[in-house]
Each structure stands twice: as C-alpha cells, then as structure tokens.
Design a protein around this nucleic acid. Sequence first.
DNA 1: GAATTTTATTTCGAAAAGCTATATATTAGT
DNA 2: ACTAATATATAGCTTTTCGAAATAAAATTC
Lengths: 147, 147
Amino acid sequence: MEQESVVMFFESLQRLMRMMRQSRPWEVDGLSITRVQRFILSTLTTQGPCTIGQLAERLDVRPSTMSTMVDRLELAHLVRRKTSPDDARVKIVELTDEGSAIVESVRSTIMRELADSFTQLTEAEQHTFIELVRKLSDILQKQHEEN
Amino acid sequence: MEQESVVMFFESLQRLMRMMRQSRPWEVDGLSITRVQRFILSTLTTQGPCTIGQLAERLDVRPSTMSTMVDRLELAHLVRRKTSPDDARVKIVELTDEGSAIVESVRSTIMRELADSFTQLTEAEQHTFIELVRKLSDILQKQHEEN
DNA sequence: GAATTTTATTTCGAAAAGCTATATATTAGT
DNA sequence: ACTAATATATAGCTTTTCGAAATAAAATTC
C-alpha cells in the first residue's frame, strides 16, 4: 500500500481527535474539572471502581502520576480511595455521590453532541466504523505488547 | 439508533486514541523531545512554516501556551521565529536544519508503526476507514460552527 | 489623519500533568 | 523463613496549560 494512505489516515484521525477533544475544564458549580480529571471520572463511571494501576494503564501514565491525580480528585470529594479486601496493597478508587452527580450532569451533554453527529451516518456506516476502530485498536495493542 | 452504539463508539475511539498516543519523550542524540514538541515539529514538517496562532489552533491550546513551547524548541535550536513580511505582529515558526533532521530520523519510525498496523486492514477497509473519519469530522466541524 | 478597536504575540504567576527515583507495605515464590 | 515481585505513595523536577495583562501592529471608524 502507498505511504500516502497512512499519512492521510493519520492526518484525518488527528483532525477527528481535535474535533472531539474537549480541552476546556468543565465548570460545574464553581468547580473546575480538567480534561484529565474528566477522563478519570468518566472511566470510573463506565468501568466502575478501579485500582490506581488500572486507571494509570487506561490513561497510559505512570502509577505514581495517577496517584497524584487521584489525590486532587479526592481533595475535591469527587472520588474516594479504599483498600481492597483481597489485597491490602491495592487501593480501589470509586466515585463519590458528588462525583457521580457531576459526571451525570455533564456527560449527557457530550454524548448528545456525539450522538447528533454519529446518527448522521447510516447504520451500516456506524457498525463498520465501530468495527474498524476496534480492529485497529486490537492490532495496535498487540503490537505494543510485542515491543 | 440506540444509545448503546454511541457509547460503544465513544469508548472504542477513546481506546484507539490512547493506543496511538506516544507519551514518552523521544530520545535523539541525548536530546529529549516531548510528545507535544513532537507534535509541533511534525506539524511544521507537513504544513511548512506556521504562525504561533496556527500552531496553537492545531494543538487546541492558547497562543500564550504555544509561545512558551516554541521558546523551548527555539532554545534547543530545532525551530526559529521570524517576523512575517506581511504583518509585523505575526511570527512565523519554521524548522531549522537541525529540527528537520531530527523529525526525519524519528518520523519514519512512527509512520512505520502505524503503517504496520494499518496495512493489516484490507485495502477496502482502509479506504472506508479514512472516508468515515473524514465524514464524521466534517459533521462535527459543521456542528461546532453552528454552536 | 486621528482616535479607537481589534488582532498576534509575549510575559507572568499559578496550577495541573507527568516523569524518575525512592520508599513502604503486602503478596507470591522458593 | 527468606527473597523477589507488586501496588501505591512521596518527593523533586520539568513541561504543559490557563488566565490576566501588556505591547505593538493592523484595521476600523469618524
């Protein structure tokens, strides 16, 4: 295949990322939630309580980095840490009621915006898109694991 | 369409974005190039000389942020600033020879990695993928312009 | 042409993000 | 029981990022 297609794909995807990126902090009740914090809160919403290590892996940062970031969220009463009953080394991070409320109040806005756009594709396109994204992700993950 | 598909799509795409993220600094000749610096250097390579404002827009950061980042790249002799002949307010940022050499020595590695993965899709899948990414980007852009 | 408004970039201060090195406690393996 | 591996936390440092404010140039208005 030609080098141009990869470049074209890369540039297109970068553009889409830019479009989807919400870099501005959420402003909710005078509370400022950064993009990274948003990611963490969203992950806890969809995945349920996670370990520091799991969150770090998902965001592709060091566990020490994640510990610091969870500190700040804990300080804001949006998450809380508790020790795992199975392994005393492990800290489980979960949303507080406050954290959940904040995510809910904002998440529907993002989803609505994405849904408005996504639904302008045909159903076949939607399925194909999801399938391709997954497939490429799996390939990339496999490649990362080999390096 | 069902809400589940949007959620599924969103999660899949987030995962892909993370997979493509290169958060580790490049180490080239004892020089450490961060991810953001990498993005700037790559942009200057593909787009040619840019203004601070253009670079800031591409990375979706404030011009003040970009100015600081260009400072560091200039300090490392990878880029240089010069005043636009058309508008004395505007600074044009361009790669130095040194900057170009560094991008070339590294860029091929990234593209190779992405190409290795991308080429594991069929040609039809590749075309469809690019097409869908573009289409959704256009839709999102249109939506943003209306808001 | 002068005054005012807008635009592009820079500087500064503060906070967040992110890394490495190191430490501590717990669990797993021998 | 001892050693190795694992999960998280802490500290120090650099980079990123924002908003506020400043400066200079260009555009607009009168």
